[in-house]
Nucleic acid binder design. Structure first.
Lengths: 205, 205
DNA sequence: TTTGATTACTTAACACTGTTAATTAAGTTT
DNA sequence: AAACTTAATTAACAGTGTTAAGTAATCAAA
């Protein structure tokens, strides 16, 4: 069935074409300015054609989300070189902030918008890349606690605290709430300082 | 000019009528389901009438936002009874989490949506209630550092860390990202545990 | 008191949005 | 060549924020 396989491949190619241009649009114009019609226009298809390849807009968002996680995972590859759990956690946090600041539109999709999450909930399983990142975080924290470097508590509790802190920084920054606390020019530095401060207090204990 | 004053008062009453019903809609149906037409329908006016009282939808959002901050400030009144900076900060954090979990639609508007912030930026000044809350946070932290109870650092740095942490918890919860870390039934408890853990490590130092 | 201006409000419309149903055109199989 | 399948389209629905034009009612001045 070589012909049917090629057909299938062509279908996948168009799917990917849609996703590629969707992501470009996100990066260029931001989440709220991406519409089915705009995506369709970019790939020179009719808007309704998109519905032959994806169930709805949320499904496209979901796949863009997944790509975001892949980008994020890549930035964390070098972490394996750091063996001290605290240092590793620290660098992981820095990478997180960096990723959020450099890819605000992706970050928005991955952690702020509810649309892609609705799709995941519908599909039952999902968010595999997200789960993967969380698993890595929990392992580091467990390591740190085993080595007596982190104030002991349930690993989920500490993971939640750490993740919430970096997510809070990025999402407040993206949504322009930090301007009220520091001057825009000092914002990025203060964000990293906040992370340093947390790790310092965490280490001392 | 008694007559012109009464006219003015009537105008204010309709303004308030619009805002009241807008907020009811937010709470009942959530941010994304509130439209100018729905608000208009509730107050039995034409949709375009709203534009006689507010410049655009964002301005309505902004005022709902302000009401949210007032609600939040009220929940913090009892804080003045607590004199130990750490305990005070701890209770402030608990109030913050509580407010976010009990008023997700308001919280969304106040700290997650970008629409009302756009209006504030346009108006130059603004966000007075938000600034007020941040000021209170900074004072407590400065107190704590002065009394040697908190690892010393620039007050903005620590304020940012603490705020980010509680905001991260609430916003991840609201946007359904915490389900991946803990079971829904344990979520609320774990959130408060995370706060406790942060305060504990912060105190020990 | 009648005219003219101001006020409060509505209707109609524009340019969008996501999405569905019906339709056309092309390619494949019998 | 006829029948069937597939891929894509056009037209349409119901909704969005917002603007311009029009309509009554109210008020001030002639």
């Amino acid at each position: 069935m070589g012909i049917v396989a090629r057909k299938e491949q062509q279908k996948q190619e168009i799917r990917q074409l849609i996703l590629d241009h969707s992501m470009k649009l996100f990066v260029e114009e931001g989440f709220s300015h991406v519409s089915m019609r705009k995506i369709a226009e970019r790939i020179q298809y009719s808007p309704t054609t998109l519905y032959l390849y994806f169930q709805d807009k949320n499904e496209i968002l979901f796949h863009c989300c997944e790509s975001g996680f892949e980008k994020m995972l890549i930035s964390n590859i070098s972490l394996s070189l750091i063996h001290n759990p605290i240092d590793r956690l620290h660098q992981m946090g820095r990478n997180y902030l960096q990723f959020g600041l450099e890819n605000p539109e992706f970050y928005d999709l991955m952690f702020i918008q509810e649309a892609p999450m609705d799709r995941i909930i519908e599909m039952g399983e999902g968010w595999s890349s997200g789960d993967q990142a969380l698993e890595a975080l929990k392992i580091i924290i467990q390591d740190g606690m085993d080595q007596g470097l982190i104030v002991p508590a349930k690993v989920e509790t500490v993971a939640m605290a750490v993740w919430s802190m970096v997510h809070g920084l990025v999402s407040l920054a993206i949504r322009k709430r930090l301007d009220k606390l520091v001057k825009p020019i000092d914002m990025e530095k203060t964000m990293f300082d906040s992370l340093d401060w947390l790790l310092k207090t965490l280490k001392k204990a």
